[in-house]
């Protein structure tokens, strides 16, 4: 899951990035409104954390322009004021949630998880494909009764697959949602990680879950591929 943080206060952006990356999210940061808007246009993010007071272009305007572009990406606003008006106008302009500074990081994580759950039909913490399960809050992955240990990148990749089952995911799409802005797309790193992941989930099981779709990418599916 790829997250964009638009926050001019570098230290805030930095601890948010570190904290979220430790939770296996791919994180990009922008330090002003214009940069944030540009990144939001270029990349497909799964969630944006947007500060309201920003230089160059304020958060409210960034929010409006993102929504005017037709994007439905979940947005959490960060505000340093208690002003209800600002919060109302933020929610009305299309933000999905807000947090008042200083906020609790654990709460931010919970809200991020909640917003990311919205795309899934069942509002649950547990993602399941066949006998493979993944808990978003504890990061525990199981195949049947067997616990599977994953590296952060592998976990992020698996989470993305499990959020989008039965759908062809191209290498570009995977790179965009699992890796951050500094990902070098000329390498075959996506294939390398998909192979790592296959070894850990599919090896030793009869039913394979990750399938290669020739010429386009990969798919996670319950039944054997055509």
């Amino acid at each position: 899951m790829r997250i964009l943080i638009v926050e001019d206060e570098k230290k805030v952006a930095s601890f948010l990035k570190n904290g979220l990356e430790e939770e296996h999210y791919a994180v990009d940061t922008a330090f002003d409104g214009e940069e944030g808007l540009a990144l939001a246009h270029i990349n497909e993010y799964d969630l944006i954390i947007l500060d309201i007071m920003l230089p160059k272009l304020d958060g409210m305007e960034v929010l409006r322009r993102i929504r005017a572009n037709g994007s439905c990406v979940p947005i959490i606003m960060l505000t340093a004021k208690d002003s209800t008006d600002e919060i109302i106008s933020g929610l009305d302009s299309g933000s999905d949630d807000y947090l008042t500074k200083p906020f609790s990081f654990a709460e931010l994580l919970a809200r991020v998880r909640a917003l990311l759950r919205r795309g899934i039909k069942e509002r649950t913490d547990l993602l399941k494909v066949s006998d493979l399960s993944l808990s978003i809050s504890t990061h525990q992955v199981k195949r049947g009764e067997k616990k599977i240990e994953l590296t952060p990148k592998e976990y992020a990749l698996l989470e993305y697959f499990m959020r989008n089952p039965n759908r062809v995911l191209t290498r570009t799409l995977i790179a965009e949602h699992v890796w951050d802005y500094y990902f070098d797309s000329s390498t075959n790193i996506v294939d390398v990680y998909v192979n790592y992941l296959r070894k850990k989930i599919d090896r030793g099981f009869e039913k394979k879950l990750i399938h290669t779709i020739r010429g386009s990418g990969y798919m996670m599916k319950d039944e054997p591929c055509c």
Binding site: E9, K11, V12, F15, N18, G19, E22, A80, K101, P102
Partner: peptide, 12 residues
């Protein structure tokens, strides 16, 4: 702003 930083950095 400084409170957010202090709190956030400690929490993370």
């Amino acid at each position: 702003t400084p409170l957010t930083i202090v709190k956030g950095e400690i929490e993370v």
